[in-house]
């Protein structure tokens, strides 16, 4: 179980998700059960089969390139983390 807990810790770190020790314990047990069930997929032969990123082939249609009003400055209304018209984040280092 220790290995699973480490895997959960690593995954949570990659996902930028703080978990308590109780959560790590719970999710590490469940992960085994769910992944074992999902491993059933390995039975299915897929050699030479294309991947389906969408349900059917979509030819993406782009709209006309017409300049519009950017919403950037309005979007700042939605946060208190701002200064001089910019977002104010925590430090990078």
């Amino acid at each position: 179980m220790g290995g699973n807990k480490d895997l959960i810790r690593k995954t949570a770190r990659l996902a930028r998700l703080h978990l308590t020790e109780e959560e790590i314990e719970k999710y590490s047990e469940e992960l085994v059960e769910v992944l074992e069930a999902f491993s059933k997929l390995q039975e299915l032969g897929t050699s030479g089969v294309e991947r389906s990123l969408h349900p059917y082939k979509i030819s993406a249609k782009l709209r006309e390139d017409v300049p519009g009003k950017p919403s950037g400055r309005d979007a700042l209304k939605l946060t208190k983390h701002k200064k001089d018209g910019y977002y104010k984040s925590s430090k990078l280092q």
């Binding site: 703080h18 979007a75 939605l78 208190k80 983390h81 977002y87 104010k88 984040s89 925590s90 990078l92």
Partner: peptide
């Protein structure tokens, strides 16, 4: 950071803030 639920930003790395 940009919308929705937030907390105070302490003197911390951004990874720490987001994860918290």
């Amino acid at each position: 950071l940009r919308y929705g639920y937030t907390e105070e930003i302490e003197n911390e790395h951004y990874d720490n803030f987001y994860s918290r």
